[in-house]
């Protein structure tokens, strides 16, 4: 499992490879907070290569979204497979995030 960050246009795009769970959520949180600290404000997390997410992983996304908004920025999500989409619907987190089918769509108008 790993997190890769790259800049596309004005946005920082994070690829989540593998799982986002209790054992690695802090690593993702710290990487995004470091970029926020450096002045980045637009973030996109791409789940195209993600297996599953547990409640700790969901919690980190919620907490990052809040933090980024407090700094006048935005966190968007993209490329959720059917299972991840179900997970977001079960927890109603699909109402909290802007979720796009693809990275390209998420970056449009960002």
């Amino acid at each position: 499992m790993s997190f890769t960050l790259k800049k596309i246009g004005d946005a920082v795009v994070v690829d989540v490879e593998g799982q986002l769970i209790v054992g690695n959520r802090q690593e993702l949180k710290q990487k995004v907070l470091d970029e926020l600290e450096k002045g980045e404000r637009k973030f996109l997390i791409d789940f195209a290569q993600t297996g599953y997410i547990d409640s700790s992983g969901l919690g980190v996304l919620v907490s990052l979204s809040k933090k980024i908004r407090e700094h006048g920025g935005e966190l968007r999500l993209a490329d959720l497979n059917d299972d991840l989409q179900t997970l977001f619907e079960l927890t109603k987190l699909d109402t909290l995030f802007q979720i796009s089918e693809t990275r390209e769509r998420a970056l449009e108008g960002f």
Partner: peptide, 18 residues
């Protein structure tokens, strides 16, 4: 219920629910 308006932005509290 972590899906309520009051709880939706909480970082924790979804484990047993899931």
């Amino acid at each position: 219920d972590p899906t309520t308006e009051e709880s939706i932005e909480a970082e924790d509290g979804r484990g047993v629910f899931l």
